[in-house]
Nucleic acid binder design. Sequence first.
DNA 1: TGGCCAATCTGGACTTTGTCTAATCTCGCG
DNA 2: CGCGAGATTAGACAAAGTCCAGATTGGCCA
Lengths: 136, 136
Amino acid sequence: MNYTRDNMAGLLRSHEINPTHQRIEIAHALFSRQEHLSADQVMAAVNTRHSETSKATVYNTLKLFLEKGLVSEVIVDPSKVFYDPNTTPHHHLYEVDSGKLSDIDAGSVQISGLPPLPDGMVTEGIDLIVRVRRQP
Amino acid sequence: MNYTRDNMAGLLRSHEINPTHQRIEIAHALFSRQEHLSADQVMAAVNTRHSETSKATVYNTLKLFLEKGLVSEVIVDPSKVFYDPNTTPHHHLYEVDSGKLSDIDAGSVQISGLPPLPDGMVTEGIDLIVRVRRQP
DNA sequence: TGGCCAATCTGGACTTTGTCTAATCTCGCG
DNA sequence: CGCGAGATTAGACAAAGTCCAGATTGGCCA
């Protein structure tokens, strides 16, 4: 799969998102890298050379992508949210000292024995985060 | 177990923390409630009636408690960190719309099939968060 | 083509959470 | 009693994110 800007337009449309210039650039930044980026990093990626997209638009757009299921949020660092272009079920490995975040495929991981949910509640997601640190 | 202020002093000492007035109040706020509180909520709890403890002290103290293993951090909400008086291994249930956070005992939960860690890395902790939402 | 309108984007002010610093306070001990 | 290390404080500051009112865009139809 090729993450050209043209393909981004299609991707956005298939998620019922009107593909504007800014949205295409933001999607491109996330998907071509296949990495976890914070809002700040998206800003920087989109505004290399000359400033093109405002802070408000970056935040609005990421929130929109999230609602439309195009990206997911990863909350591992108290100071910033990461956005993840991988929306298939998977887990995360977080290197505490470097801040590096990587995926753990959900395929082989099994979680069992979770208690029943409170009445009238539905699961929105299960986040499994393995926090690791460089051996001292 | 009884979470009197006197017992708090002993608890702090047993974790190599000099038990000052402010630290005892903060420990008392966390342990007598047996709940997850944010720094803000600790501030409010400690400063009912007249202001007694400054913001800087609350933050310093929570960080100190964390280092000394007296409390643990729970990162589920991008906007604030919760502090958890329960340091035994356990997981969390987070009600997304209300912000309510509760414990899931680790006893019956099994996680298997995690891939090996990268070389030279040690696990610092495994966070399992079940995000739920009220049925629409 | 030209004009219209709704959707989108923007700068900048604002809020909230948390950090930092330099000055002050406390308290055990000689 | 007075000293000094450790603790506390007020308030300035930083960073992430939100909000708003006005400007821009672009698709559509005559």
